[in-house]
């Protein structure tokens, strides 16, 4: 029993790592810009295909491919901000619909470029840390965990300690009051989109050798997205980060012990409970809900 718990703990830690990277980016975008980015799963997918192209096909070093993937998807985020969300800023539903369109464009591009087959990516490392017969942690997974911890810590430091991090938090809490402090909404929107998209891209890139990469792999992200945004609430970026990490962990534990469908149900139930008990979300403030 103890061994199963330990193994589940590792599995949960791994899955929570990349899901939180995706979810945190999503809540960052929602918090600062007020739009639900439906294409977020496809940004994750784009990061994975960056690794397919650069690492599997062109044989670049894995970390270089991941780095380029982060930058490439971050730039996709900047493109979305400029072309879709900025013109539609006063129309949150418009931003949502435009992001659904962008989702389809990215999916089609992936199909056109790579076909609908599952991609086979050579493993980065086959090493396994064996704690016992039944408790084993593949090193490739450990890398994902380390990367997530480093990136999320860096994001936390950025939000808490830097001038632009404060600007992002202020914009998320009250965009108009933030503008009255001299904070440019266009600038915070760009920063949020670059970081949010980049984190989704890096999550896709890091996990590409461990999952089945295909043009439709972003689908499962959407439900997660909704739950995390609602549970995390509006306004507090730090709260949203905590909520997304917690959700990712719970979801993975349920998936490991039972199955993924039940995990989705549990996730949605948790969301309903939060909505009943705290309609503004765990960390949200009432004046923006």
């Amino acid at each position: 029993m103890l061994e199963i718990l330990a193994q589940t703990g590792f599995n949960a830690l791994y899955a929570a790592s990349y899901i939180s990277l995706v979810a945190v980016g999503l809540v960052l975008i929602f918090g600062v810009m007020g739009v639900v980015n439906f294409a977020h799963g496809e940004l994750f997918m784009a990061g994975a295909y960056a690794v397919v192209a650069l690492y599997a096909d062109l044989h670049m070093p894995f970390l270089v491919a991941v780095g380029i993937g982060l930058a490439f998807v971050g730039l996709l985020g900047l493109l979305m901000e400029r072309a879709l969300f900025r013109p539609l800023r006063d129309n949150p539903l418009g931003g949502l619909v435009a992001s659904i369109g962008f989702l389809m464009i990215l999916q089609s591009l992936a199909v056109m470029g790579f076909g609908v087959r599952m991609e086979h990516i050579p493993p980065v490392t086959q090493d396994v840390i064996a704690f016992s017969e039944k408790v084993r942690l593949p090193v490739a997974r450990l890398y994902v965990i380390i990367a997530a911890v480093v990136l999320l810590s860096a994001l936390w430091f950025f939000l808490k300690r830097t001038r632009f991090g404060w600007a992002l938090r202020a914009s998320a809490q009250d965009p108009e009051a933030a503008a009255l402090q001299g904070i440019s909404i266009n600038q915070t929107a760009r920063i949020a989109m670059f970081i949010g998209a980049g984190l989704a891209g890096v999550a896709g890139a890091l996990t590409a050798p461990l999952v089945s990469v295909n043009p439709f792999m972003g689908h499962s992200v959407i439900i997660t997205a909704f739950i995390v945004i609602i549970v995390g609430g509006v306004g507090s970026l730090e709260g949203a980060i905590i909520a997304s990490v917690a959700y990712a962990f719970i979801h993975t534990v349920v998936t490991t012990f039972w199955d993924g469908v039940l995990a989705d149900i549990v996730g949605l139930m948790l969301m309903l409970i939060v909505l009943i008990v705290r309609p503004t979300g765990l960390m949200g403030s009432a004046d923006r809900a």
């Binding site: 404060w166 809490q173 108009e176 402090q181 001299g182 904070i183 403030s285």
Partner: peptide, 19 residues
């Protein structure tokens, strides 16, 4: 007033000096 509710008092003040 429109202060930033989730930021500390000092963070609010320093945000006023953003530029």
């Amino acid at each position: 007033r429109r202060i930033f509710p989730d930021m500390t008092v000092e963070e609010n003040l320093r945000t006023g000096a953003f530029l």
